[in-house]
Amino acid sequence: MSTLSKPASVEQIDSTMIVKAHRVNKSFGSLQVLKDVSLEVRKNEVVVIIGPSGSGKSTLLRCINHLEKIDSGHIFVNGRMIGYYERGGKLYEESEGNIARQRADIGMVFQRFNLFPHLTVMENIIEAPVNVRKMSKAQSRSDAEQLLTRVGLYDKRDNYPNQLSGGQQQRVAIARALAMKPSLMLFDEPTSALDPEMIGEVLDVMKELAREITMIVVSHEMGFARAAADRILFIDEGRIIEDTTPDQLFANPREERTRAFLSKILH
């Protein structure tokens, strides 16, 4: 349950609006990590979030699929409030089953890949389609084969994750998320745990993906942002302080803090 301001009504959200976050607040103990954050992401938009470590960017991402609870505010994905339902002006946390159903439509890729080590690459990918979506094994397998071909790892389908390089594992993780046919993909620092020579192969897959699916990416890969992002958000101390296009941001950042941050990460 959370306290809130007047809820944004669902009717305001048209079908092209994939994510709408409205005045989201979130604290860990006494530390407030998100302060009145509002955000809208439309269909097929690619939004890159940058910001200093501890600025709240990963937390914001994790609130969007309710891996973190929020203290107040609203987050809608595909027009449905995530993790909560409203009754009599109050918010209550959704049942576990409903939250799970909502998450099934939101793909997430983690910094540390989080592949299931006891399952082969193929089993990793078909696990959720078969056991959550209740798709047939044959159909899931053929879908998975296509996805693996797409990320260039078809010949690794019977390997276990620990037999793959970091870059390969992350590409499998992307395929695993895509197998659920999500309407939104969240990437939480997908290349931060990779050796430098493996970053490119993961970014290439993401760039390809950026043409056809809505994505929110927490990353400091400016090359990727320049090539694929429609918007870049700069978050600092729990607030979105810049929301602009990559060209605009690099050419002429509005805020001094953005300028200072960019000069650090662009070397």
Binding site: A128, V132, M180
Partner: peptide, 10 residues
């Protein structure tokens, strides 16, 4: 977290 993000219940 990965399992939950794929729509699995606890």
């Amino acid at each position: 977290e990965a399992a939950k993000s794929l729509g699995m219940t606890y």
